[in-house]
Amino acid sequence: MAFENEQIAGIARLARLGLRESELTAYNRDLSRILEMIEAIRGVDAATIEPLAHPLEISARLRADKITETDQRDKFLAIAPSTSAGYYLVPKVIE
């Protein structure tokens, strides 16, 4: 399994990770090694096996439809990098 550096840049974009051009080759080498190691599972005949998503195979527990959590807006805004008037601030999205 070998990637083109362009593919690595594509995966990074997909994952919203800003990588420098100079880092691509090292990531390429490491990702290729990891993919090569993972390749071992592809040869297993598991066509009839149900996927196991959760070790205990439990389904989500339901709770009574009651309010149990209080509003903690101020507390959560206090740890944000940038806020104004009770909202998170981000760079302008719509011109």
């Binding site: 995966i11 990074a12 997909l14 994952a15 800003g18 990531y27 490491d30 990702l31």
Partner: peptide
């Protein structure tokens, strides 16, 4: 994300996004 995460975390996120 690029500046905040270290190399191993970035590697794993990328492999995860890929698979």
């Amino acid at each position: 994300r690029g500046e905040g995460f270290g190399d191993e975390v970035k590697r794993r996120i990328m492999v995860g996004a890929y698979v």
